[in-house]
Design a binder for these strands. Structure first.
Lengths: 107, 107
DNA sequence: ACTTTATATAACTGATTGGTAATATAACTA
DNA sequence: TAGTTATATTACCAATCAGTTATATAAAGT
């Protein structure tokens, strides 16, 4: 397969708008591919392709229901993004007073 | 110029590893282009290209110091990413007890 | 067995990306 | 003003991406 080790980092995976949309749809509830296709502007193979990438990234898991493949969200890997944001949060958290911010900048 | 309205969304901007690296370097302190080049594996034009994208995204601002262009981090736009993550945080915040989680969801 | 339904993969394509070398611009310096 | 230093832009290129159509696979229904 030509698509073996692509999209190495999670940031790239969630950079694509249609993939974020899929993630959002799966946040509501698990859904079949058909459902996702109906609610997106993509063709069925287009959706399947994104699902493959999400699956490789560990962001979704699948189960079967007769012929249907049900995709479930697995949000845990998003923690990596959240962790990366950690040091920047102070810049927009207005709850932080000036002294705290000053001390953080001294690090 | 061929690069006018590219990288429309912030997720794409931070998807690139070298750009994240630049952001991290600027978190420590403002730096000149030369400094950033020294600390990266890219050529000077390579760094300048990424800086242009970061500037267009509002993630950096510039000041001058004679010939040097000093780049400053402006983290505020990252808030968009943080906001997007909001609904998913509950999935990995096992350290939070039920009450805290409830309160966070009420915000 | 044949057909339908549901999904995945393959093959292809045009656009975009990130990189570089070469060049332009701009500000100091002698 | 000629040379040096610092940065930005241009022109180009190979690789990757996201999308499509066509095809394969697989389960269910008739």
């Amino acid at each position: 397969m030509q698509n073996e080790k692509k999209h190495s980092n999670l940031f790239e995976v969630i950079a694509e708008a249609n993939r974020r949309h899929i993630i959002e749809m799966l946040r509501v509830r698990p859904r079949s591919v058909g459902e996702l296709v109906k609610r997106s502007s993509l063709s069925q193979p287009g959706v399947s392709k994104h699902l493959r990438i999400l699956r490789d990234a560990g962001l979704v898991t699948t189960s079967r229901e007769s012929q249907k493949h049900i995709y479930h969200l697995r949000a845990e890997p998003l923690r990596e993004i959240d962790n990366w944001l950690e040091p920047y949060r102070q810049y927009w958290s207005d709850r932080l007073d000036a002294l705290e911010q000053f001390l953080d900048e001294e690090e």
